[in-house]
Write a protein that binds this DNA or RNA. Structure first.
Lengths: 249, 249
DNA sequence: TCCAGTTCGTGTATGGCGTACACAAGTTAG
DNA sequence: CTAACTTGTGTACGCCATACACGAACTGGA
């Protein structure tokens, strides 16, 4: 037997649990990768990504900082593991439902996960979905499109587009509400007020008109929520147009 | 005269150049905000956001680290200023063109700016567009929709959606090509190979089928490019559907 | 049984980061 | 001329990720 995936990145192998057969001596590990990842997720959940440092993580586990490095090659690797753990397995969607309903449920559920772990959007993307959970999300997204007329490449692009959209939109909403209620620091930023004070209506007529229409004056908890639904429906309308163009042809 | 915007965040006032009238003594400043911001952008352009530290910035300017803090309250503020400077003014779009063509040009040009300063996508979003350049991008996006049947709130949501899309998609492509060619470290990650080695086709049939179809085997410089156009057309199709639904009604 | 080899957790150390603070020198308004 | 203020600077603090070397724990083979 070859050692299967010697060419795979270490983090990917750990993600899929392909690291067992290498114990040729030494004390029994007192820590485990699962415990470390779980503690990392907990730390980030409580205090944001900034609160997740290797020293704080080790302290929470009751070990020294460097001991963590016996299980994880770097903090970047740890983040990859924590991300896959935090996003979790997607719930299965009814395959009998219409593809569009399936994708709406998929996207909404994904958004729920992002909201449960707001720090996830702060973790830099490291590549295509390589962990088991991320790949399962990808899988379910593709399955939802199975009965459409889209070609394989288009299906992959669509799911990637939706995943990107959910991530980015969630991040935007989080950042806006964070700024809107003044996280940590003092003054909640009142964007319409900023525009009124600073943007010359002669130079920014469309922006001024939008602000004057009171679009952004709603309570900041409501406005961005509709934002998600609006974008999702637009994207799905676009996908549906592509689907229908093939049907009628 | 009141001091106009004493309630505005410091960074916003600096963005719009509302800080002149306060010189009641002291040596003439040897540095200027513009020089600092320009140097910061240059530093990030050369070595990415990680290369932009306050000490390196000061060194490049020929001053001590702390001198920069006489002009900028924090590094976060500096990033806000650098972002607005790097994104630059949008080129004016032909108002006579169709709204959809205008938005395509708008989005493509925005993508060009992001590619010219790849670090921009790494700067955390701090809120709605508050700088003069960012606001001008917003303005032009809104203007492109002026002749459509969309309501003010829908226009704002559409432009926000497009801006979010361009940013997120550019970031995704950057991260993928970065991983695909192995930035700094050794092995370029071969995603199809990862899937083949690690993803059980029985559990991930749709993913396996996609990989088997060779979707991701194209040279990594071509695949993600089409990704941008695909997403953009889908979104615009969705916006067009909304527009048309009002026309026919 | 013993020992060579391996892996564990740890202690120490390095070089980076953002930035708080105090101070001397320069500049202006009264 | 002087009081008030701003400038650039030097020093210092606490935090970060992580390289490295060491002794202790454990294993498989002789």
């Amino acid at each position: 037997m070859t050692d299967t995936g010697s060419r795979l990145p270490a983090a990917v192998e750990q993600l899929w649990g392909l690291r067992e057969p290498t114990r040729r001596g030494g004390p029994k590990p007192a820590l485990s990768l699962d415990r470390i990842v779980a503690a990392a997720v907990g730390l980030a959940d409580e205090g944001g990504l900034a609160a997740l440092s290797m020293s704080r993580l080790a302290e929470k586990l009751g070990f020294t900082t460097m001991s963590v490095y016996r299980y994880v090659a770097s903090k970047d690797d740890l983040l990859v593991l924590a991300l896959d753990a935090a996003i979790g397995e997607p719930a299965e969607v009814d395959p009998a439902a219409a593809w569009r309903d399936q994708l709406v449920a998929w996207a909404q559920q994904l958004q729920v996960r992002y909201r449960a772990h707001p720090w996830m959007t702060d973790v830099p993307i490291s590549g295509l979905p390589a962990g088991p959970n991320q790949m399962l999300w990808f899988e379910y997204g593709l399955r939802a499109l199975a009965d459409t007329t889209l070609q394989p490449g288009e299906r992959a692009s669509t799911v990637l587009l939706l995943a990107t959209f959910v991530r980015a939109q969630t991040q935007l909403v989080q950042d806006l509400t964070r700024a809107g209620r003044g996280a940590g620091g003092e003054p909640p930023v009142d964007w319409p007020e900023v525009v009124r004070q600073v943007a010359d209506p002669a130079r920014f007529p469309a922006v001024a008109a939008t602000v004057a229409a009171g679009i952004f004056d709603d309570d900041p908890d409501e406005f961005p929520d509709d934002e998600f639904g609006f974008g999702l429906q637009r994207i799905l309308d676009g996908v549906e147009a592509l689907h229908r163009s093939r049907v009628s042809a």
